[in-house]
């Protein structure tokens, strides 16, 4: 295994508090909620596993806990979001869920297009397919429709919530939304310098 301190991005001389803080920050960064219905969820899961192992190893090395089982305060990764679909009564929808779980988005979409009835579950699964493809505007519309049709469905509500609120931003960065960013934002983005082309004709640019 690679150096656990390197994985946690800290020096071996770091205090226990610093280790814990570094671990928490990384766990926040690779939290499964940030990769919900994201095609890269498996990579984030691997990363999280690596971080958990590194934290565990550091804890062991430091022997801070005598009876030590799993890393203290460690996050468990529930795995990539699964659509096993015990809730699904419709066999077609069950096949769609299976296709999504196996990563076959094209098949899932084809099956959904074959469906005669477009109920709440259909809208929800269309939303999931759109999310996997990166079609974020349509995904949101489908999820909203599903939630409107069945407002009490916890699965749909959770998907909507994650769509709106997931994402990682390190502490200290301003704004987490284009509409909430300060009015003067663009003015602060650049400090310029000039670049002259071979003929001496100035090309001004802004960094």
């Amino acid at each position: 295994m690679s150096d656990p301190y390197k994985v946690l991005n800290i020096s071996p001389n770091a205090s226990d508090d610093e280790v814990k803080r570094a671990y928490r920050e990384l766990a926040r960064k690779y939290h499964p909620d940030n990769y919900h219905d994201n095609p890269l969820a498996d990579l984030a899961q691997e990363k999280m596993k690596e971080i958990n192992e590194a934290y565990e190893q550091v804890q062991k090395q430091r022997k801070t806990q005598a009876a030590y089982g799993s890393p203290q305060g460690a996050y468990s990764y529930g795995g990539a979001s699964s659509y096993a679909g015990s809730s699904s009564a419709d066999p077609l929808m069950q096949r769609v869920r299976a296709a999504i779980n196996s990563g076959d988005i094209t098949l899932a979409e084809r099956l959904l297009n074959e469906a005669q009835e477009h109920g709440a579950e259909w809208s929800f699964l269309m939303g999931v397919v759109c999310m996997r493809r990166g079609w974020m505007d349509e995904a949101k519309q489908y999820l909203q429709t599903a939630c409107r049709m069945e407002p009490d469905n916890a699965e749909y509500r959770q998907a909507m919530q994650l769509f709106d609120n997931s994402g990682y931003q390190p502490a200290g960065y301003r704004g987490f939304g284009s509409m909430t960013f300060g009015d003067d934002a663009c003015m602060r983005l650049c400090a310029g310098y000039a670049c002259f082309s071979a003929t001496g004709c100035p090309i001004f640019c802004c960094i």
Partner: peptide, 15 residues
């Protein structure tokens, strides 16, 4: 909102 959804996807890939 939809622009931000793309930025978050970029950030999660960049991470």
């Amino acid at each position: 909102e939809t622009l931000d959804a793309s930025i978050r996807r970029m950030a999660s890939a960049y991470a």
